[in-house]
Every structure is written in C-alpha cells, then in structure tokens.
Amino acid sequence: MAETTASKKVKFIITRQDDPKSPSYTEEFELGYRPGMNVISALMEIQRNPVNAGGKHTAPVCWESNCLEEVCGACSMVINGKPRQACAALVDKLEQPIRIEPMKTFPVVRDLIIDRSRMFNALKRVKAWIPIDGTYDLGPGPRMAEKKRQWAYELSKCMTCGVCLEACPNVNDKTNFIGPAPISQVRLFNAHPTGEMNAEERLEALMEDGGIEGCGNSQNCVRSCPKGIPLTTSIAEMNKQTTKHMFKRWLTS
C-alpha cells in the first residue's frame, strides 16, 4: 500500500445512525491522502483506525460492499448529494469535504447500510425471471434476434443498486411506487423469447397499485443510473405495452 502523504488530508463528513430507530447524526473524519483512493478505501481506513476528526475514538462506520468494481450494487450511498456506487467514487474527483449519507429512501439499518428488500420484493411482484422449470426436459428455447439481444443486454446490467429509486422524486414515503428498476426488468424479461410467454402477467403486475403509473417523468433515474441503462426508454416502452394491454383486455374480454 502506498505511503500516506502526511501533509495532505481528506475530510469526510459521514451521516451516521446507530440503529434503525435512533436519530441520525454526522461525524467528521480526517484521513491522510493516498493517490487513487476511493470512498470504500477511505471507509476501510476508518475501520482500521476509528478515530474521528476530533481525535476521539469512535465506533467504526458500517457500510456494505462486495465486488468493488461497480457490478454488484451493494455499496450505493449518497456521496456529495448524489446517489452512486462508493467503490467507483474516486476521492480525486470529489469536492471536499466529502459528504457521505445513506440512501434514506430505503430503511437505514446502521450508518451507511440500508435495507433494499423493497427492490427484491418488486422483482418478485413483476415476476422478473423466466420460468423454465418442468418435470421433463423442455428442450432449447426459441432463438433471440441479435439486434434485440444487444439492447436487452444493456437492460440486464441492472444490479438492483437502488440509485434510481433514491434519485426518483416519486419514490418516497407518500407513495408505493416500485421505482424505475423493476419496470425496466419487465421490459427485459418480456423481450426474452421464452420470457415473452408470460409477458401479460408481468404487464398486469405493472398495472397494479404502485406500478408504472407512479412515474412522473422527472427522468432523474436515467441520469443517475451507474450502469447507463436507458430507464426512461424502458418506462415509456412499458407505458406503451401496458396501454395496449389495457385496450386489448377491454375489447377481448
């Protein structure tokens, strides 16, 4: 590990919370600058030496992270006001002091750890999977056109990180909107040649309360998605398909 440059310091202001019910508070930390450091490596530094800027020994800051290469979605937090992946937040590119907060759209478990269960529940709700289980070998499924595969692949990059929900002004405690991510997943699984066979079930799930109607077109999601997923295109496409489905259901039932 590179030597600490004693002269240069990096200041962090971290919003902390001891347990889900207690009030949040901020604590400042000062770390020696190291070239190439990112928010996760800074948090690791604090974990190794949990002393705050006032020189007082404190409980180490808790956070979640796994892959450290922006593909798992675990280390989402609000850094200088923007929800993003902490592992990809390079200190060199951040304005100081660096303010770190948990994504409060989700229930805070402790410090920067949040509970993203609502996203996984939403994926269950819209049936974001392809049912292929049977009592016998179903054989190979239909092929997917290459052109379709290319855009579907972009949608498959979603890592359920929750950044789009945090950015969305319509995902809050006053609504039950499921948020952009699961809507885009419906588009993904409905595009799959086998998944398509259950397309209507997924569309109907989007037409339930808290479904696609919750979108207010602020388009923050597409601008903050760390994977660059065309979320607003997905939402508009699902608007089209649910609208079509609505008329079809009226006229054929």
């Binding site: 006001g81 923007k82 950015a167 002004p169 319509n170 809050n172 006053k174 609504t175 207010g216 077109n217 602020s218 388009q219 923050n220 601008r223 903050s224």
Partner: peptide, 19 residues
C-alpha cells in the same frame, strides 16, 4: 402532493419541468 422534489440535487431540465 405525493411528490418529493429534489431539484437541488438533480439540476437538469426535465427534473425542473417535473416540479
């Protein structure tokens, strides 16, 4: 009244139009 505007955090046109 269901909206929770966040224009201070996301300063692009579409979000402004939303509010």
């Amino acid at each position: 009244f269901q909206a929770k505007p966040n224009n201070n955090r996301f300063k692009h046109e579409r979000n402004l139009r939303y509010t």
